[in-house]
Each structure stands twice: as C-alpha cells, then as structure tokens.
Design a protein around this nucleic acid. Structure first.
Lengths: 135, 135
DNA sequence: CTTGACCTTCCAGTAACTGGAAACACTAGG
DNA sequence: CCTAGTGTTTCCAGTTACTGGAAGGTCAAG
C-alpha cells in the first residue's frame, strides 16, 4: 500500500502518516525500489489505533505509551487503565472549566442588549475581576 | 511602572507582557532613558482585559478585535455580542465533544479489569471503529 | 564597589502538525 | 516514445501563544 492508500484506510491525512513515521510513532515503513513508502495492514491497524487515541485526547507521547502496551499484549492492562483513568480525570476537569466559562459568558451575552448604545456588559465583564498573579 | 509591576498588576507573566507588546496586541510602551519599558494604568487595564478574554478562550486575534471595540466605545455592542455568541457556540460544541469522549472512555475504563490478563477493553475500544477519511 | 535583582535583546524550543517548493516516479492516452 | 497529470520524495518554513535561556546593560542597597 502506498501512503495515500494507507492514509485513507486509517482516516488520516497523508502528511500526518508521514509525520508519524518520521517521529517514530509508528515503525518506519518498507520502501519500494523508487523510494516510495510501502505500508502493510499492521501499519493501518496501528495508525487507526493512534488516530482513535488522539481523538480521545491522548498526546502523541501517551500514544507512544499506549502503542507499546498494544504491541506487547503480555503487559498488564493495569498500565492501560492507569493511563486512561488519568486522562478521564483530565477530561472531567476540562469539562468543569468549560462549564464555568460557558455560564459566565452566557450570562454576559444575555445581559447585552446588542444595540448601538456604547455600554456593553460583555466588555465590562471582561474588564472586571482580577485574580491572583500567576506563579 | 516597570514591566514586572505591570505584569503583577495585570496577572500575567513578564514574558507574556513583553510578548503582547512585541506582537502589537497592546501598544508599544514608552521607554526610560535606559531602555526600560514604562507602562501606565491604561496599559494595565488593557492587559487585564486581554487576560480575561484569553481565559474566556478568545484567541489573540479575537482579543485584538475585542480590544479594538473596547478602545472605541462608539462602535455598537452588537459587534461584541456577535463575537461572544459565536464563541459561546464553540464552547458548547466543545463541551458536547468532551462529553461523548468522556462517556466513551469511562465506559472502557469501567469494563477494564485492570489486572494482568492480556486482554484489555480499553485497547480494544481504541482499536475499533473507523470513521470516514478526513477532508 | 560589589552584589543581586531587574531589565534588555535575540535565539531556540514547545506540540502536532500543515503548507509549499523542487524534483523524481508512475500511469494512461495519443 | 512523448506528454500530461497525479503521486511521492525530501526539506524548510510557518502555525499558536507563549516559554526558557544566554549574554549583557541598569539600578538600588550596603
């Protein structure tokens, strides 16, 4: 399979497939006489796996970890569970943040008449509140 | 005010304040004889405004837009409302995505025994499902 | 005068790609 | 066999929004 075929099969852009090979996330594919990358079905499976994991918000580094576990089924699934659970917590945290963001902004939008008067609660709301300085 | 004072007042790292001046997001500050940046209260207000807007998920480009509106109160608040509403929709969309992500991953984690058996529903779940190819 | 904190500029790096240029490879039609 | 068009290669640069660090100038205290 040439790169565009495998890219389509995996649901990834060609550039990304090349990139994943470049950074060693997936093994370097065989090459044809003319230098074309030649992928097999195993490569497709791994790329699909990576795409899915990325969609779940796993970083490329975490994908590397997961792929290692995926490759070596003898390792305990506890490792996988640990990684996934940590990510689950991060997602939940992000959801909470997003929720408060949404509520606050929605409140401002609601309060905004959206007409041509110069005062605007959204602007005013952005201007308000000063938190503690960072680190 | 020197940069560290204004940074603290605005709740931003020094580097970021310098960066915002560099990219012209906020106006280039006056300089002392020795070349030190010298900020005034208006600069602090703008930086606070930008920090808040960034916290709301507005991109730097959008902050530029908003800052323009903020600077020119004669413009209608409809513009502000339009931008904020669009962002609100994006936040809601992101929340929905995050929710389905969370549910799916939580399901997999629950199904995972987390022991030393070689099969792992999380791995299997990541391996499954192939969507349409992108763009 | 020296020490230490603060400031300057510039360069590089981050994450995860994405876009584009220049050049070679392959396939189909004429 | 030639040509056009598409696919592929490598490499370099750019993206976003900073962040870290080096080399060096400045300032206030003791």
């Amino acid at each position: 399979m040439n790169i565009s075929a495998v890219a389509e099969a995996a649901g990834l852009p060609v550039k990304t497939v090349r990139y994943y090979s470049d950074i060693g996330l997936v093994p370097a594919p065989a090459r044809s006489d003319s230098g074309y990358r030649s992928y097999d079905d195993a490569a497709v499976r791994k790329l699909v796996f990576v795409r899915r994991a990325r969609e779940f918000g796993f970083s490329v580094g975490e994908c590397r970890e997961l792929l290692g576990l995926y490759e070596d089924r003898h390792r305990s699934s506890a490792d996988v569970k640990r990684i996934a659970t940590r990510r689950l917590e991060e997602i939940a945290e992000k959801q909470r943040e997003l929720q408060s963001l949404h509520d606050e902004l929605a409140h401002l939008v609601e309060a905004c008449r959206g007409d041509h008067r110069p005062d605007c609660p959204i602007i005013d709301g952005l201007e308000a509140r000063r938190p503690a300085a960072p680190e």
